[in-house]
Design a protein around this nucleic acid. Sequence first.
DNA 1: GAGTGGTCTAGACCACCCT
DNA 2: GGGTGGTCTAGACCACTCC
Lengths: 247, 247
Amino acid sequence: MSQSQSSLSLHETVREEIRSRIAAGTYAPESPIPSTAMLSEEFGVSTITVKRALRDLQAAGAIVSTPGKGTYVKRQRRLLRQLDVKQPFLDEASIRPVSVTREKILDPTMASIEPPTHAMLCVRKTIWSDDAPLVYDTTYVSTDMGDQIVEEFAGHFVVDVLEKHGIHVVKTHIVIDAAPAAGMVEEIFGIPNGYPTLRRLYKMVTSDPNVTVYGVLQAPFDRLACKIDFDWTSGKNSALPRGRRRK
Amino acid sequence: MSQSQSSLSLHETVREEIRSRIAAGTYAPESPIPSTAMLSEEFGVSTITVKRALRDLQAAGAIVSTPGKGTYVKRQRRLLRQLDVKQPFLDEASIRPVSVTREKILDPTMASIEPPTHAMLCVRKTIWSDDAPLVYDTTYVSTDMGDQIVEEFAGHFVVDVLEKHGIHVVKTHIVIDAAPAAGMVEEIFGIPNGYPTLRRLYKMVTSDPNVTVYGVLQAPFDRLACKIDFDWTSGKNSALPRGRRRK
DNA sequence: GAGTGGTCTAGACCACCCT
DNA sequence: GGGTGGTCTAGACCACTCC
């Protein structure tokens, strides 16, 4: 076995060796890597040390372990999404409702978009792409709306539903950050606690002064990235992203 | 000890209990939490299980352990940064050069901004704020520039240096994603492997057709977030972020 | 020297999957 | 039933800090 670096601890050298094998294609995407017992024998370390290395690789999104089956190299497929559009997401994506409740916004991470303190309609759903969950969305809307509209929220993009009822988004405030996965997100994506996720907090002001939409989009880091372009030539410090963009 | 959930494994219940104590203020920011030995006794589990819980909390950015000293609750201080400005970063920040080399862009994560394949001037530096490293910046610039300009790159923002020499940024392409920390970033920020980071890949087209700037900004997730606002009223699908913004 | 966290080990049990 | 990964344990050694 070739040791890439000295002064690395055992589980680190094992981790990096496996990582480089994945990069080199020795362990191919979607196919299993040797069991902890075999790796333990090959590297001459205890199974616990191997498990530690594999756990770190899981946390970094390189592999996935399934109890009873084995450990597999993760296929990488990241979606690059333009930021400067009204729709929260894709047209081709399928939406699966999770829950519709009435809640106050308690998540401290939402503080940066200054949400109201009263209870609002809370719609949670997952958006799927390519037969895998892509983002987990939590949307908060003012409750004083018709009940039939509320029904539609669970299965469609909130913006689309509002638009259909003549309510237009006039301003969007977005905060993008990274955060370790916790709670619901772990279960939905099957990722371990602390797994890096990309988060998009949003606040949408609409043409109806009574209707403001708040929410969070959350996706595992290896599934989604955001993109935005600025053109500084068309005015002093103004941004005109990519001109027109009608579907 | 109160157990928040059943059907959680031991290290999970320990982890969540400690997490809630931090949230409640029982364990205050910047102050030490009990040692693994004490926690092990209190919870009635082995020290290894406690260590496992603490390691997960470290990976989530809640605590910091220093060998020989103890484990401390991390103070949270995140900087919210507007995206729609030319300068890569703050004015009040201090810059510490790391290295100036000549390299090809090899990082596969840069592929999304389509960098050139030839070798370029590569400037690495850290930007500090509030006596702590805030972001790690890697900038690539075309090499055909005066040597004295190259000298300035290490200690100043690239955009500022170019501007001083009459070269203006006309277009900016940005890709934002999250990624687990690896390599240099771990050392600089003192974070464990796999720690979630926020990344900003950029490509800047300048008024000089020979000069295009590529680069990556990388920051621990708990140090930085990005912000951007869109106003859809001023034209069909055009974005005019927050009007004027001169310092 | 006492206490700390980090690493590594051997060994055990479980739930799960597959044949 | 044999193999897998996940969990938990007891015990050891090290490097480090602080007194």
